[in-house]
Design a protein around this nucleic acid. Structure first.
Length: 261
DNA sequence: ATGTCGATACTTTATCGA
C-alpha cells in the first residue's frame, strides 16, 4: 500500500499537476495540505474519476487538508483534539481497511509559526503539544498508523542546506525541535530516515532567491509511523522531480510503501 | 534590501500568509 503526502499550496492552482502525478505515481492514499479551499470548492469529482474516495477538511483562503483513498473510509475525523477555540483546518484523520486489518492515516498541516515574536509561534508550540497528546492516545490503540504531512519542522542540521541561516526560524528553533523529538520519542519512526542515510535530501524549496536552482531546500514533510506501521515499512521516497514542473508547488510529494498483504 | 507565489477584496493593486 502506497501512502503519500504533498503540500500542494492551493488546489485550484495545482489541480492539473496533482492529477498528472496521481495518474503516474498511483498512490493508494494521498494526503494533501494547504488546499486553500472550502469543502464545497474542492474538485472531488476529478479524483473520484480516478477511483479515489475523498475526505476534505477545508477553510477559506488558507490551510485546509484532504485525504484521497482508493479504498473507502471506515471513519473520518476532522480536526486535532484538544482546543475547541482552534478554527484552523489543519488535521484530518481517516481509517481504512486493508487485507491485513485497519490502517489509520492523518493528513497534517502543522502551523508554520513565523514570525517567532508573534502569537503564531506559541500557537505552533501548543499545536505540537496537542499532537503529542493525541499521538499518545493513538499509540494506545496498538494499530498501524501514519501521521503524514507538512510538519514545518527541520529535524536536524542534515535536513537543511544552511543550518546557521535557519537557527532563529520557527521551523528550526530549539523549542520546535524539542517538541518534534518528544513526539518521535513516544515511539514513532521517521519513515524517510529509516530508509535513507544521505544528508541534504529536501522536500521544500522556497519560490524566492532561486532556491530550487541552487538546491537550497529543507526537509519538512514527514511520514511518522507507529511501531505497527514501521514493522511493515518497505520503502520511502521523495518525488523531487515535480518541483521542476510548470507551476510547481514549493513542496514535493513524499511517499512510503507499506506491506499490507 | 530584495527577490515569489496563491488567495482575497470596498480589485486591476495591495494585503496577508508562507
Amino acid at each position: 500500500m502506497k501512502i503519500s503526502t504533498w503540500n500542494i499550496n492551493g488546489i485550484k492552482a495545482r489541480l492539473d499537476g496533482l492529477l498528472t502525478w496521481l495518474e503516474q505515481a498511483k498512490p493508494d492514499v494521498a494526503c494533501l495540505q494547504e488546499i486553500k479551499s472550502v469543502d464545497e470548492g474542492f474538485p472531488s469529482e476529478r479524483f473520484e474519476e480516478l477511483g479515489y474516495n475523498v475526505a476534505v477538511h477545508g477553510q477559506k483562503s488558507f490551510n485546509g487538508v484532504a485525504v484521497l483513498s482508493k479504498k473507502p473510509f471506515d471513519e473520518i475525523i476532522k480536526g486535532l483534539p484538544g482546543d475547541d477555540e482552534d478554527d484552523h483546518a489543519r488535521y484530518l484523520e481517516v481509517v481504512i481497511s486493508t487485507d491485513s486489518g485497519v490502517v489509520r492515516v492523518a493528513s497534517i498541516y502543522l502551523p508554520n509559526g513565523n514570525p517567532v515574536d508573534t502569537e503564531k509561534f506559541p500557537y505552533k508550540l501548543r499545536w505540537m503539544d496537542r499532537l503529542r497528546d493525541h499521538t499518545q492516545d493513538l499509540l494506545a490503540l496498538e494499530e498501524p498508523f501514519v501521521l503524514a504531512g507538512d510538519y514545518n519542522v527541520i529535524p536536524t542540521d542534515d535536513d537543511v542546506h544552511a543550518p546557521d541561516a535557519w537557527r532563529g526560524d520557527a521551523l528550526f528553533r530549539p523549542e520546535t525541535l524539542d517538541k518534534f523529538h518528544t513526539l518521535l520519542n513516544l515511539g514513532l519512526t521517521d519513515a524517510y530516515r529509516a530508509c535513507h542515510f544521505e544528508s541534504h535530501q529536501y522536500t521544500f524549496w522556497d519560490f524566492q532567491r532561486g532556491a530550487w536552482q541552487k538546491d537550497h531546500g529543507i526537509r519538512i514533510d514527514h511520514l511518522l509511523l507507529s511501531p505497527q506501521a514501521a514493522d511493515r515499512l518497505q520503502g520511502c521516497e521523495i518525488d523531487r522531480f515535480t518541483r521542476g514542473w510548470e507551476k510547481p508547488s514549493d513542496h514535493v510529494p513524499v511517499w512510503i510503501e507499506l506491506n499490507t498483504d
